[in-house]
């Protein structure tokens, strides 16, 4: 009987590792930007091409940066969640319109509702690269000092908002 103990033990350890591995999502790459200052940019607003915004303009307030595009299918899925979050006025919501056309983007917002204080227009996706964006939608939370505190990859869900974003926003707004 004793001689089966070692193989059985090895099997259980291996099964444990595999079980944990099954639960991981290989698409979610941890961002090295968390805890670092939000990368700099100078971008024009989607609706006012003459108005330029930089992260320095946003100092002193907590802001949420949501990367979206009119061509992005999952953005449609998460959009109602953003519209709902905007209604609670917990945070300044800024859109980053990634690799898009201005007209298509504006039409998309007209159709689905505009939860953003304003959207920034990143037509060539350069700012997206600086933020390590590799799959739209992505969402960043930036604190008053301009430090990225949280990043969500993929569409936001009610659950993520309730369990991660709202508690973190409450903490950041208190600080």
């Amino acid at each position: 009987m004793r001689r089966f103990l070692l193989p059985l033990g090895l099997f259980i350890v291996l099964a444990g590792f595999l079980a944990v591995g099954l639960g991981l999502n290989p698409r979610e790459v941890p961002s090295p930007l968390i805890g670092k200052p939000a990368p700099d940019f100078r971008l024009a607003k989607l609706h006012q091409p003459e108005a330029v915004v930089t992260p320095a303009d946003l100092r002193g307030q907590v802001w949420l940066l949501n990367v979206w595009a009119s061509w992005c299918v999952s953005c449609r899925q998460e959009h109602p969640v953003l519209v709902d979050l905007a209604r609670h006025k917990l945070v300044t919501m800024i859109g980053l319109d990634y690799k898009d056309g201005r007209d298509a983007a504006k039409a998309w917002l007209n159709e689905h509702g505009d939860p953003y204080a304003f959207s920034l227009f990143d037509g060539d996706g350069r700012v997206g690269i600086d933020y390590g964006v590799y799959g739209v939608p992505e969402t960043f939370l930036v604190d008053r000092d301009g430090i990225i505190r949280y990043k969500h990859i993929g569409p936001l869900t009610d659950r993520v908002v309730k369990e991660k974003i709202v508690p973190l926003l409450k903490e950041l707004n208190r600080a």
């Binding site: 790459v29 961002s31 090295p32 930007l33 690269i129 933020y131």
Partner: peptide, 8 residues
């Protein structure tokens, strides 16, 4: 690239 996308 690493500073934006990590070691991955």
């Amino acid at each position: 690239m690493v500073s934006r996308y990590g070691d991955f």
